[in-house]
Amino acid sequence: MVPLSWYLILAAALFSVGLFGALSRRNAVAILLGIELMLNAVNINLAAFWRYGNVTNMAGQVFAIIVFAVAAAEVAVGLALVISVYRQRNTVIADDIDMMKF
């Protein structure tokens, strides 16, 4: 049997990889890609805790589903914003979109 720790460590690693992507990529779409990885890592955790905890309690799966919904919403709005910004400023480099400063 696979112990719980393997799943958790996999999730932590995937989360860190996603975090790196979100922090370091220049392209806004790539940042969103990183965020997707982080959300998936969360889902692995949720599913693992469901399986390794009390199976009859569906909380883990339910919240994984809700994470799906949040991810879909995030991508829809995020990409819409990216496209809108691209139309306005002709760039999707996150560092170039820095009007909101002093």
């Binding site: 460590i9 690693a13 989360f15 860190s16 990889v17 790196f20 370091s24 990529r25 220049r26």
Partner: peptide, 24 residues
């Protein structure tokens, strides 16, 4: 494709993983 602070992002990611691993 990486911004100027990518090394810092990498550091933070590694720290996050390390912290999570430590906590686990």
């Amino acid at each position: 494709q990486m911004n100027r602070n990518w090394w810092f992002g990498a550091l933070i990611s590694v720290l996050t993983f390390g912290g999570l691993y430590f906590l686990l």
